[in-house]
Design a protein around this nucleic acid. Structure first.
Lengths: 224, 224
DNA sequence: ATAAAACTTGACGGAATTTTGACATTCTCT
DNA sequence: AGAGAATGTCAAAATTCCGTCAAGTTTTAT
């Protein structure tokens, strides 16, 4: 899953820097240089918002409240101020965290990740059930065939998770590789056929049926 | 346990009356006569909030949403209105119940108690009991194996608390480190395997069984 | 102040996983 | 049918990860 982040700040230099840095970390980034623009860009359905608290026109705090009327996602304030009162005001307006300028990019990334994870944990459906008694529990990362638990390695489970969460769709090896290894991973996506083999063997041994179908020349698909 | 109740209403006469009545029933009461005051008084960590829906300035519904961004507790609306639409609006804003004015004090107490009871059931497990006689008391920070108390250091207990509160889920070392040390802590999350080792040794010595499972390449999980 | 306990660090070996590459098989198209 | 490309199989190599220990540092208790 690749996350979308909306940056709201009126300093183009800063937004430019942040944007490219976040993109390097695999995020999809939208930028708004004004409050109005920010409200428009909410339709990109960001997973997280970085919000400069000092903005001309509508204040960052006001904007925060306005945003809260539309979507639910973590909102992190970027600010030079740091008084306790500011903090209270920000949280009161519906913000989730404060990051004071100047901040390290590492810290920024760490906080973003923390909030995204927390947010994700709050609204993740716990499990996916597929045909004929095979249960894939995504939060526990366990797979059951009837009462029996099947054991999969990390990569194997990640591939199962990706495919079974998007049943009946065909994904080529590059796509799967990107989803599981990461967009910037270097390496040969031909490893996948080996992992697929292992997965198939385990599933077949336990259940006696095929869950992953090869679509020749196109990729693989999870049958449902 | 004595519960804290926050009353939010702009009519001093009413708040005065309610306050003394609730105090007679053993509750600790805070009063806010405006929305701003209400938000400030959230730091008293009320267990329940009585909220007048008709308030000057920020509307009761808005206030309710704002409160919801900060704490989780039952919110009961006090209102003269009673249309179905109002009810829907209120619940949508995050309210838990409606009490229409004028109301009997007995009824009020009854509803408050009902909600407190329900709330307590929902999110205050004072202790976690896991398989075979192991008891983890989170509020006292003590662990028992049958009658015998086991001793854990702070870090050890923190890790046990985090894992056992989220049984069966797998957390990688970074995630555990973040949860226990804090998301902005610097340091090497590899310390965790050493703490895990200590925890396992103590639990094994006392109970003879494994509670923490290693999921290779993914992290650790509390078996339940 | 001193001792004890808790916490952290780094290194090592072994174990499980992941990757690689050679080769076999299957499929598509002519 | 046969060439070429894509996929499947297998075993060995490379890598990553975990458990353990010993030693150093910090914190807490006496």
């Amino acid at each position: 899953m690749t996350y979308r982040i909306l940056i709201v700040d009126d300093e183009p230099i800063l937004t430019e820097l942040l944007s490219s840095h976040l993109q390097d970390h695999g995020y999809t980034v939208s930028v708004a240089n004004s409050s109005d623009e920010a409200l428009e860009k909410l339709n990109t359905k960001p997973n997280l918002i970085l919000l400069d608290i000092n903005m001309p026109g509508m204040d960052g705090l006001e904007l925060c409240k306005a945003i809260r009327n539309h979507i639910v996602c973590p909102i992190l304030f970027l600010t030079a101020r740091i008084t306790e009162q500011d903090k209270v005001n920000g949280l009161r307006a519906g913000g989730d965290d404060y990051i004071t300028k100047p901040f390290g990019l590492q810290e920024l990334i760490a906080r973003i990740e923390a909030h995204l994870r927390r947010d994700e944990r709050n609204n993740r459906p716990p499990e996916v059930v597929t045909s004929q008694g095979l249960i894939i529990n995504l939060s526990d990362r366990k797979v059951f065939w009837n009462e029996q638990e099947l054991s999969f390695s990390k990569r194997e489970f990640d591939i199962i998770e990706f495919l079974s969460s998007n049943p009946n769709q065909v994904f080529d090896k590059e796509r799967i590789y990107e989803a599981v290894w990461g967009y910037d991973a270097e390496g040969d996506s031909s490893v996948i056929k080996e992992h697929i083999r292992k997965i198939r063997a385990k599933l077949m041994q336990a259940s006696g049926s095929e869950y992953i179908e090869t679509v020749w020349g196109m990729g693989y698909r999870w049958k449902k």
